[in-house]
């Protein structure tokens, strides 16, 4: 008994050591960003790298927050929050619905459509940009928030659907069957039985769709024109002139700031990972 607890204690310590060392590797970029955001522009690129700012400045944050004066970064955050939250909620609902269909139901053309689903991720978006733009224009979606989150209402993208489908296929059919015997409708099975068992992957979807919608630069760039609708990545980009000149310090500062909500969401969400899924209760 003693030797096994010693071994597990040693293993735990070893784990902590390894994790901490690796953490340095992963933390470094954020560290670089944070530390650079407080350096005056002329110091950011100095060689050798200044591990701690010699001169401090808050100017980048002040300039960044002020943004356009009439439109402050607070507004930008609000826009981004709005679009992101709508996207995340819509994605979770629609992607699980579709994934359930692909995982559990049998219907004509399912396999072909599943391959089509995957195929939607295989065509580089550069070549569908013009017709997509035209379609959005026809639907009067140009320069609206809706252009940014409309995709979320249609499944949110093959990535999420495929992911959830894999998870659902890992759940035993017995659950469905016993519910079916009890007279449950298909939707009931989806909503009350399968969905709750997907909580790890649902948390993952929330984290991923939040992060990706939040950080999405290209879609708002192309479809938004009104400055007061800008989201965080687009707003940060307006500080950068050609080839990396311009207010690099401000871009770094606002990027650092923008990571805070992401960190909060991630940390809160992954805590629910610990709880794991309810035991696959085959009883009843």
């Amino acid at each position: 008994m003693r030797s096994s607890s010693f071994r597990s204690a040693a293993a735990t310590v070893a784990l902590y050591v390894v994790l901490s060392l690796l953490s340095l590797l992963f933390v470094f970029p954020l560290y670089w960003l944070v530390v650079s955001s407080f350096k005056p522009l002329s110091a950011i690129f100095r060689i050798p790298f200044e591990w701690w700012p010699v001169d401090w400045t808050f100017k980048h944050y002040k300039d960044g927050w002020r943004f356009m004066g009439s439109v402050t970064f607070a507004r930008v955050y609000l826009n981004t929050a709005y679009v992101t939250i709508v996207s995340v909620v819509a994605t979770v609902f629609t992607s699980t619905l579709v994934a359930f269909g692909f995982a559990r139901l049998r219907f004509l053309g399912k396999n072909v459509l599943f391959v089509a689903l995957l195929a939607t991720m295989m065509l580089p978006t550069q070549v569908t940009l013009v017709p997509t733009f035209l379609i959005f224009d026809y639907l009067n979606l140009i320069d609206t928030y809706a252009a940014l989150y409309i995709g979320a209402f249609f499944g949110g993208g093959a990535f999420y659907i495929f992911l959830i489908r894999q998870f659902i296929m890992g759940l035993p059919f017995d659950l469905d069957e016993s519910a079916r015997l009890d007279g449950a409708s298909t939707f009931r099975i989806y909503w009350s039985i399968i969905l709750p068992l997907c909580s790890p992957v649902l948390i993952t979807i929330v984290i991923l769709s939040f992060t990706w919608t939040y950080n999405d630069f290209f879609t708002p760039l192309i479809f938004l024109s009104s400055i007061e609708k800008f989201t965080v990545p687009v707003a940060i980009n307006t500080f950068l002139d050609e080839a990396g000149t311009g207010k690099v310090g401000v871009a770094i500062a606002m990027t650092t700031l923008s990571v805070v909500p992401l960190l909060a969401v991630f940390f809160a969400a992954q805590r629910r990972f610990m709880q794991g899924i309810a035991t696959t209760g085959l009883k009843g």
Partner: peptide, 16 residues
């Protein structure tokens, strides 16, 4: 989300 979507789609160019 539904309400927002409707509102968001209505705030087209003229509103901004």
């Amino acid at each position: 989300v539904l309400l927002s979507a409707v509102l968001g789609a209505c705030s087209s160019k003229s509103g901004g």
